[in-house]
């Protein structure tokens, strides 16, 4: 029986081998965050893992310049976002409809709270029904009781920023 140290050693050597040969064998879970780039200059072969650009980098909005450095992106833009603006609200969501954390969104706490409230309004109004957990009822017309009928929300009743 192989001891743990020996196992890790063989795994490490295997992973190195997979990189050098270029085969698609992964020892750890694949996240596709980095791309392995091989460059050969003369006798030296450099293998480098480079972060891939995010899918949003091409369509990012240009933020206006504000004196306050600790201003978050939504405070800078100063948009009157409503719960019907699903194209903006869906940017803060995972594919199962959960809100992204502040580490990811980089919003201030007030804006993060406001966005999560607007998202819950949009979900209740059935405007983002596909962004939900896999086993949930995706069609808002099939919901139970009063939830199957159309409703809307008034943003002026929300706590001001």
């Amino acid at each position: 029986m192989m001891n743990i140290h020996g196992l890790t050693k063989t795994l490490a050597s295997r992973s190195f081998q997979s990189v050098s040969v270029g085969r698609n064998i992964h020892v750890t879970a694949t996240s596709f965050l980095k791309q392995i780039v091989e460059q050969k200059q003369g006798k030296t072969l450099t293998i480098e893992a480079v972060y891939q650009p995010s899918p949003r980098s091409s369509t990012l909005i240009k933020l206006p310049e504000v004196e306050d450095k600790e201003c978050c992106s939504l405070c800078k833009l100063d948009l009157p976002i409503k719960h019907t603006d699903v194209l903006i609200l869906s940017q803060f969501l995972r594919s199962d409809g959960c809100m992204l954390s502040r580490r990811v969104t980089k919003l201030c706490s007030k804006q993060q709270m406001r966005m999560s409230n607007l998202v819950s309004m949009a979900q209740k109004a059935g405007l983002m029904s596909k962004l939900n957990p896999r086993n949930s009822k995706k069609n808002p017309k099939l919901r139970y009781g009063e939830k199957k009928f159309n409703n809307y929300w008034d943003e002026s009743l929300m706590r001001p920023l």
């Binding site: 965050l33 995010s54 949003r56 369509t59 990012l60 903006i88 990811v104 969104t105």
Partner: peptide
């Protein structure tokens, strides 16, 4: 193609 307000971290 809709303008994105937020980018994911690296």
């Amino acid at each position: 193609e809709f303008p994105k307000v937020m980018d994911y971290p690296n």
